[in-house]
Design a protein around this nucleic acid. Sequence first.
DNA 1: CTCCACCGCCTTTTT
DNA 2: GGCGGTGGAG
Length: 784
Amino acid sequence: MSSFDEMDAFEGASLSARAMAARPKPYLDGLNPAQRDAVECLDGPVLMLAGAGTGKTKALTTRIVHLLTLGQARPNEILAVTFTNKAAREMKERVGRMLGQPAEGMPWLGTFHSICVKLLRRHAELAGLKSNFTILDTDDQIRLLKQLIQAAGIDDKRWPARMLAGIIDDWKNRALTPESVPVAAASAYNHRGTEFYAQYQARLKELNAVDFGDLLLHMVTIFQNHPDVLSQYQRWFRYIMVDEYQDTNVAQYMWLRLLAAGHKNICCVGDDDQSIYGWRGAEVGNILRFEKDFPGAKVVRLEQNYRSTEHILAAASGVIRGNAGRLGKELWTEATGGEKVRLIGHWDGEEEARWIGEEIEAMQRGTRGQDPVDLNQMAILVRASHQMRAFEDRFLTIGLPYRVIGGPRFYERLEIRDAMAYFRLVVSPEDDLAFERIVNTPKRGLGDKAQQKIQIAARENGVSLLEGARLAVDSGEIKGKGGAALRQLTEDLRRWGRMAGDSDISHMELAEIILDESGYTAMWQMDKNPDSPGRLENLKELVKALENFENLQGFLEHVSLVMDNDKQDAEQKVSIMTLHAAKGLEFPAVFLPGWEDGLFPSQRSMDESGLKGLEEERRLAYVGITRAEKICTISFAGNRRVFGQWQSQLPSRFIDELPEEHVEVLTPPGLYGGGYGAAAGGTPVQSRIDERMAQADGYNSPGWKRMQARAGERGLSQPRESRNQVIDLTATSSFTIGERVFHQKFGYGAITGIEGDKLEVDFEKAGVKKVIAKFVTAHDDVPF
DNA sequence: CTCCACCGCCTTTTT
DNA sequence: GGCGGTGGAG
């Protein structure tokens, strides 16, 4: 590679090192002793254990600046890896700012994936690929697998493609090729997992394509099989830095170890307490055994927190303490005082959303006895994205501006993927997946039968689908309306392809032409769905995004890995995102709703991974709490709609783990004030909670008892619903089968069964439901 | 071939 | 409560 030779020419160029060492280093001044330690220890393996909010990024970026200032490495000799584009961008910006110049010269600062793409394009032939390979996203991946599964005559209902995709991803995360999948795993996917894996890989090669997992896997394989290539990079990357090391999977770990094996100048930064990607193959073990992997490693602990109040830190520590096998860190802060972590229970999810909405507005106005807080400084962090809807609904009705972060990514949207498929096909006419995607979008009268004919024509002649389509039309195989439309399409594509090479037309103009002439834009203009205008907007945005690239090809190469749409608009908005998406961020005020067993910790996580899963959930709780700087509000609801079914919920076990002295229990004003607390008299619900809590250790549950007490005081004075609660609590035990009852949500019904504190009720409108007795009243007691 | 109504499954979390 | 897949009608 010529660029590589060029780089090699700089070897030994560090002669000015001594001169550089004498330069002033003002950037070191703002560091605390631990940070400074981590920054100045440049050679040999270093593990930086950095708790939340301890200035990890600062240390990391300062380290880079230090390396550069001392002249120990040139910008392109430093390999700095992050997990997200956001983190990479931020680091680049910070380094640039500290150096007082744009850090464009750091080509190897990026995500694992983007760096691997770069490497793999250079050495594609060693993986049996051409260097212009395409990167498939999950969607393409699934469609491809589905084809293989169906071709094998397997019922893809019983053996879904998604499942297979998951298995294969898993293997790739562990750096396993089809040949090296252990025998023990052979039973996967009805004993045909490895077989399909091999087929899939072969097909990818045919398509000159890779999936996300391949990026790492191919590079690890190349490094292993081609020592010359490896040693080239071992020499080139003189210093390696890794962010979020606790999130590395086996493949990434092997990749790093291979690269660092020579000089061992590797600095990994991480926090075992923030490892939340186990489900994606991350191995906390990687960070736990760093010192074994790199004997003599220097371990630096960053424990001074600059972000949160003492109460918030104490609450977070209280929760994370429940995990075994930690490396052990205790965050501390010089800050004292501040508000305690606030805890509140609600009747249901809607009520929770309503309360949070009001709370946000109050904070914004500063009516909570505090300085007003900007909407930008508040965030709602949920466990699962479906929880977001309740907030979006509520905020829309009250007109509270919000932004959803990390929702469906821009480039994952239907219209964007369609448009990109057109672009792909123009740039590389042999892209069969793209062809399949758009042959009949917009509708061209090309159904299954016509598409099969295209497949056959392509296969028989050993050509791409697009070429096969031409043949099928020319041979008269496909006639009539569909045939004419197909001919038009193939000719258009050819024409656009020519235009792509024409310098008179900018690629942005070309993109517009493609979308218009293909009829794709018209398709959405015709569509009367309320969301089609939005789609058209997105298409416009897509064309605008092309501005930043040289040509369509350049755009496509980057888009799958780099394009994110967290375009920060200037408007003041509350952020809504998942806990996962929140890692690395911080907000003065944080809301953590939905702390209910089954939701958080997620039932599925616990079912699938047992104690390990629970511990990961707990780390997630830790991450959530530590996002907050000043105000952290945790909440849960007693009822929640799951899959459209109402379900009663128990407060999360993590709530019990919050240390009492750092928590303040709030009682919601007005409605349902007694949701839980009013039950102090010992209702079935209460005793069930008690029972569960007795099992969990530390039932001394802090805030919990106070909550009961507090709400109990108020219980009787609550108007409306809560009065109703109190009444019906005493009546609970006296329910009988056949009795007519009323439920807040379901309306009227008759009891058909009683099971402890649960009733089975045949509701007139809602049908048969299981409900908690407490939430049902004998029908005469209906309020209002 | 397309459209539409119905059914079943589902939801963690993402580069 | 939503999405994709299916099956029957136009």
